[in-house]
Design a protein around this nucleic acid. Structure first.
Lengths: 226, 226
DNA sequence: CAAACGCGTTAAAAAAGGTTAAGCTCTATT
DNA sequence: AATAGAGCTTAACCTTTTTTAACGCGTTTG
């Protein structure tokens, strides 16, 4: 299981990282929210642990960005002792739990176990495979199973389609997507994204029930009729 | 839009109720959780605002009961300042937001606007299907089945028509609608809405029994004769 | 009843999106 | 090192969607 850990205190960070690794998890440690966000978009994570107070981008903002793209990945916050209002903000973002420093390693492990068990029900994680209308899609291998045969997607095609599919029937926010895939939501990246939407639409044309609809000024939404 | 308000402090209750009414919402004010729950079962509400501390039945218990019946209706809690663990409990129940007393009316309005927008346009994802006079309407796919064939609606057309249809035979309040769709009820958005009312009227002209009537100074009402 | 306001409607301006193709930047290959 | 190819970005052009403006008419209110 892959864990994304964002902690600016390098001592604590290494400590946690080593502990979790010793328990059989794979851990990516990042120094701040910004780096964590980039990492999150490059790799698939099953669990996130964020310190709330970090330079560049704090844990809550980070969680907000991530929630735009992934509604499900469990997020656990590490907060300095007994903050008041701050905690709530975390929960409103769909946090699954929080720990107040100082905490014991065992406590952390217990939470991770409990939450990931809950999150895992019905999900075989690792090998992802989707059925989009009549078309099978394997983001892990970037393969689209069309009627005429397998089609290998490019990096960007795959990233975008993956997000669309993960957020089926929901609006995929334009800005958040741009930041996730292109790292920046300026005008030109926006146009680039439009170009990729066009490419993907062409690829999925095979099944007339699939539609990527535009929500003016907001983003795109993948819907599949009946 | 119908709001269910539960607040035992009658002064505050009346104040809130009047303020919200002045902003175009219909408000049912109840004195405690028990009465609120009864009211909830008699009428359809689009939004709930509950004080946490109330006699008979507190806000959290109330929310728990309501969530048993309705998983989606937005709930906002009003809490006395800075409770600690208690607050968290609210979020676990699927609260959408909370406000800590004292708060400003504007702040409340902003939250309501934001949440109901999110709930409204974000995910209308269940297969809805309406019959408006002789015209079938599928808001999920933004399709209007006219005599001449299918007509695809634009984002705004769809949002507005959806609200009209959901509130058939009831007045769709102008200001509340503007905040729900446009996020702000300023003069220009108002004119924009009028333009869309005109568009929709044109689309629905096919069936002479359909009428979108104006209620001067209040809003619009979709009625279907006999 | 007149001034102010709200609404109906149409047209024009502005913004956002759809699509195609040319250009650029890598990387792999000769 | 030059060439070719793949992938991505930028540019260009066009369409659709939304907003803003303008004008006229009905309604309300003092």
């Amino acid at each position: 299981m892959n864990i994304l850990l964002a902690e600016d205190d390098l001592n604590l960070g290494e400590l946690l990282s080593n502990f979790l690794k010793s328990k059989g998890y794979q851990v990516d440690l990042t120094r701040n929210g910004k780096l964590a966000f980039e990492r999150f978009n490059q790799k698939k994570f099953d669990f996130c642990i964020f310190d709330v107070m970090m330079p560049e981008m704090d844990g809550f903002t980070l969680a907000k960005e991530i929630r735009e793209l992934d509604k499900k990945v469990p997020i656990l916050f590490l907060t300095a002792k007994a903050m008041k209002e701050d905690k709530l903000e975390g929960f409103a973002l769909g946090a699954d739990d929080y720990l107040t420093k100082p905490f014991s390693m065992e406590e952390l492990l217990a939470r991770i176990t409990a939450i990931s068990r809950r999150a895992d029900i019905g999900e075989a994680s690792e090998e992802e495979k989707y059925q989009v209308g009549t078309i099978a899609y394997e983001p892990t291998y970037r393969i689209l199973h069309l009627a005429e045969g397998k089609k290998k997607l490019t990096t960007k095609e795959n990233q975008l389609l993956h997000l669309l599919v993960k957020n089926k029937n929901e609006i995929l926010d334009r800005q958040a997507t741009l930041r996730a895939i292109w790292g920046d939501d300026n005008y030109f990246n926006g146009r680039s994204m439009d170009v990729y939407i066009a490419k993907i639409r062409k690829l999925l044309r095979e099944d007339p029930n699939i539609e990527i609809m535009n929500v003016h000024g907001k983003g795109f939404k993948l819907v599949i009729k009946e």
